[in-house]
Design a protein around this nucleic acid. Structure first.
Lengths: 206, 206
DNA sequence: AATATGTTGTGAAAGTGAGCACAAGCACAA
DNA sequence: TTGTGCTTGTGCTCACTTTCACAACATATT
């Protein structure tokens, strides 16, 4: 084992949830735990937790368990979360505003450093801690700042166009809230969040 | 084949994306298509699309392909999306407001019929088309209205408590934006959306 | 009617991920 | 030092998903 590239995407998802749970444990003052404890908290199989971790190393002590703080540090290091990440936001509508005003993201190291919109009513306004700029300047500004990550929160109609501009500007990862499949080169990582689709999943078999 | 219960959860996710794509095709006036066409549009294997559909029936014509409108109808029927679904929203903060003001959801048949918050500043205000009520009345109102679905958009601290109340009130499905693992009986369907976690996935390997 | 071309539906193969079960290792007591 | 109890790390097996490959069917052409 210990082959990082073998770790399936689902394992990464779970590692993130382990980290989230570790922060809860720390807040409760729980300084160590077994895979059994974590499994009960997250409704998982303890072996799965151990296997997920084993892709990246040995972080526990046999007969004892895991040190909460140590594992949190290790996970942050594995997941590249022990630093700040800068994002550009495109589309300052309802969702965009919600993201700009959410202090939780910044706390976790995700900082929106620029925001763009096409609506003259919105351009120039300060939301959260950034001033909304005209989307026509987006490409140049993103190139200039060297921002590698973007969040698309525009309408279905504009999404592909905005995505193309971002890719041209050198963005390497996109989180997209628009309800469509964004075509991007496969050098660019794309994660879609479609709330209507999640509601659809919820409704299935009910 | 034709065994509905065998359809994996991932297939349901994909069916939803097929439906979304079909709506795009209809808008473009594309009245029929092959699994190959759809596969190219969504970056999938055509056999996977055919197999996903085959869990539920035969919807195409050999040698010809699929009728766009017919398949859209069939999928809406399979996915229970040919009717309106009523939701209760708890937490009218940034995300809650974004959901209430999003007309797209209603168009797709997802209607927020009640909204609750604990903040006196927010209670009584009309957002979108509903008046925000005091969360203390939530349980009674949900029981009364018989609402089966809920969206939790409250803080981490309140999420579990709110979830428990909703379950007691008879809710059967919950979409949760709070960054924690909600404990619910396994008769209740839970779908979590954690934006920070998705950003974390985006950042991994970058 | 026969042939060529195209596309579906699906059994079977290949590939992938999860869970079991146990050796390895730690802690503490006798 | 030896023994007991506990928990990790992991090879192996089983189950599930995806993909392949082809028969079945449709349409068009000669």
């Amino acid at each position: 084992m210990r082959n990082v590239v073998d770790a399936p995407e689902e394992a990464i998802r779970r590692l993130l949830s382990y980290l989230r749970q570790l922060d809860c444990m720390l807040q409760e003052g729980k300084r160590s735990f077994s895979s059994q404890d974590m499994a009960e908290a997250l409704h998982l199989n303890p072996a799965q937790i151990r296997k997920d971790l084993s892709y990246f190393g040995e972080f526990g002590t046999r007969g004892v368990g895991y040190d909460t703080e140590r594992l949190a540090d290790e996970l942050r290091s594995i997941l590249n979360l022990n630093r700040n990440w800068e994002f550009v936001l495109v589309g300052v509508g309802n969702i965009g505003v919600a993201l700009l005003r959410n202090p939780e993201l910044r706390k976790q190291g995700f900082e929106i450093v620029m925001a763009f919109d096409k609506d003259p009513q919105v351009i120039g306004q300060v939301v959260g801690e950034v001033r909304v700029e005209n989307v026509s300047r987006m490409r140049r500004r993103v190139e200039q700042m060297g921002t590698r990550l973007a969040i698309i929160a525009v309408s279905l109609e504009s999404a592909q166009e905005v995505g193309d501009s971002l890719v041209e500007a050198g963005v390497e990862g996109i989180l997209c809230f628009a309800p469509c499949y964004l075509r991007v080169p496969n050098t660019v990582r794309l994660i879609p969040i479609d709330i209507a689709m999640e509601l659809g999943r919820l409704v299935y078999r009910l």
